[in-house]
Amino acid sequence: MSFSNSPGGEALDLLSRIAQKVQEETKVRLHRRNVERVLSAVMVSGDFWKIVDLSDLPVPAASGIVKELISEGLLFIDDKEDILLTQKGYDLIGELGIEPFVDYSCQACEGRGYPFYADKELYRTFVELAKDRPKAIRDYDQGSVTPETTVSRVLFIDSRGDLRGKDIIVMGAEDDLTGLAVALTRKANRVLVIDIDDRLIEFDNRIFKELGIDNAEAVVWDLRKPYGEDMLGQFDVFITDPPETFAAFRAFIGRGIATLRDEGCAGYFGLTLRDSSIFRWKEFQETLIGEYGTVITDIVQDFNHYMNWEYHPETKAAQIAPVRKNPTDIWYRSAWYRIETLPGFKRWNDPISDDVFYLDEEGSTT
């Protein structure tokens, strides 16, 4: 096919057809600009996992687009498993004026706006303690963020007035040791860490005891189960990092909101574009605003940087990728959300019966 005989219409139609075909195959909702973002990413990196990172797409969608672009003769994979443009691909991006991906984010703070080194003592203490953390396991969809991310989370929370003198619950996210980091500041009034993984609970409680942190405790709990009445409306702040199915969203976020005391309380959590599409974000946001009665005050894109997990080769993401090469650099990132309760907000605390808790058509990294 020659793209030079039209002012872009035929080429745009091709990208739209690719988006539609991949959407039908993966059930991930897409549009033409998603394909353009993949092409922009390929212009700066041949590494598939970096392409996923730069294109901000769920892995099934990014993989499907790359495979379809290869089928159309626009991309190819070389013997090093790098994904590259063909001459036909260069002709296409030239006709459409697609430019390489650019990144102007601050390198010192890793794009967060909150440099982890602002509290050197907290950072050094946390890094030393985190060296002995239990390894992330697949059973609970675990994947630890970098120590720099965890410390930056705490600084962000403190900057929003949600740390000092507050009762804080950290739910189902202790593979990042965020609860431990909050407790290490000794600025909160109370810290409760709950997680399904007893290894993490034992780890935190041991450190709390060794360091004499008597206002923090860790307890085993499965968030698919409703809280007892003694947990509802008892905290000023919740922090969590949910899997991104709707069942998990309600279990982690809905139950987090249920623990908050009154209006003006805050919740913090991460949402990715690696396991969710922007269409799902819209539905999550509508739930937060329309059903739960909260407002989104902050979304910091790519705030959370995840270290590669050892079980990656066993995941659906690895199996559907167009290459067999494992990621070697950070590629899985999530946005950091802050929500605040409004007058009349709703506490959600129903049981979860959905068996699809960790994986669905958009999620693939478990």
Rank of each mutant, 00 (worst) to 15 (best):
Q319I: 04
R274I: 12
D56N: 13
N308M: 11
L12I: 12
K282W: 10
G97H: 09
R261W: 03
V66Q: 06
D355V: 14
D91C: 09
A188H: 02
M1I: 08
L232H: 03
N189R: 12
F249T: 00
G73L: 13
A247S: 14
L122D: 12
K346E: 14
E217M: 14
T185F: 10
S277E: 08
F116Q: 00
I352K: 01
D197I: 00
A118F: 12
T125I: 09
F48D: 05
L122A: 07
R37M: 10
G290F: 09
Q20H: 12
P58K: 01
G264M: 04
R33N: 15
L30S: 05
E340A: 06
Y332L: 15
D56F: 08
G179W: 08
G233S: 11
S71N: 12
F279M: 02
P60H: 04
E174L: 01
H31A: 15
A41N: 00
A317E: 06
A136P: 09
D354R: 07
A11H: 04
V295M: 09
I168Q: 08
A218V: 03
D241S: 00
R32C: 04
S45W: 10
K50T: 15
I257Q: 07
N215D: 13
D241N: 10
R347E: 10
L192H: 07
T150M: 09
D222N: 15
G161A: 08
E72T: 02
L223Y: 11
S277R: 00
D275Y: 00
G73I: 10
L85Y: 07
L223T: 05
I330H: 09
D139V: 07
G254N: 04
G46Y: 11
D230N: 07
D350M: 05
E148G: 01
C265Y: 02
M1P: 02
D241W: 03
S63N: 08
F116P: 02
D275T: 11
V154F: 06
G161F: 08
Y332T: 03
I296Y: 04
F357D: 06
R33K: 15
G179N: 06
G344A: 06
Q234A: 09
T259Y: 05
V182I: 15
W49L: 09
H305N: 05
N34M: 14
L30R: 00
G270H: 06
A41C: 05
K27V: 02
C109Q: 04
L184I: 07
E95R: 13
R138D: 14
G8F: 14
D56Y: 13
D78Q: 02
P243D: 03
